[in-house]
Simulated assay, not measured.
Amino acid sequence: MNSPFEQWYDIAGVRSGIRRMFADETDAGKVFYPQRLVPYLAHEALADLPESERRALTIRHLYQFLMSTTHLETRVVNTTAELIANNRAGLDLPNTKRMDAFKVYCDEGYHALYSLDLADQIASATGVAIPQWNYGGIVDWLEETGRRLLPDEPALVPLLQTVVFETLITAVLVEIPNDPSVITAVRDLTRDHAKDEGHHHRFFAQFFHELWANLDHRLREPVAHTLPALVQACLTWDVEPVRASLLMSGVDGATAATVVADVYAETGSNADVCRATVRTFRSAGVLDVPGAEEAFAAHQLL
Rank of each mutant, 00 (worst) to 15 (best):
M1E: 10
P4G: 06
A12Q: 08
G17N: 02
R20Q: 12
M21T: 14
D24F: 02
T26H: 09
K30V: 01
K30M: 09
P34C: 12
Y40H: 10
A42M: 09
A47Q: 10
E53T: 03
R54H: 05
R60T: 09
L62I: 03
Q64L: 11
Q64W: 06
L72K: 11
E73A: 04
K97Q: 11
M99H: 09
A101W: 04
F102L: 15
V104S: 05
C106D: 15
E108N: 08
S115A: 14
L116Q: 12
A119F: 05
A123N: 04
A123F: 02
G127I: 05
P131M: 07
N134C: 12
G137P: 07
I138M: 14
W141C: 11
E143H: 10
R147L: 13
D152C: 08
L156Y: 07
V163I: 13
I169S: 09
T170Y: 15
L173Q: 11
V174S: 13
A185M: 03
R187A: 03
H200G: 00
H201T: 09
A205C: 01
Q206F: 12
E210M: 14
W212D: 01
W212C: 01
R218H: 12
L219P: 00
H225F: 12
A229N: 11
Q232I: 08
V242L: 07
V260P: 03
A261Y: 02
V273E: 11
S283L: 11
V286C: 04
D288N: 09
P290Q: 04
A292I: 01
E294A: 15
H299R: 15
L302K: 11
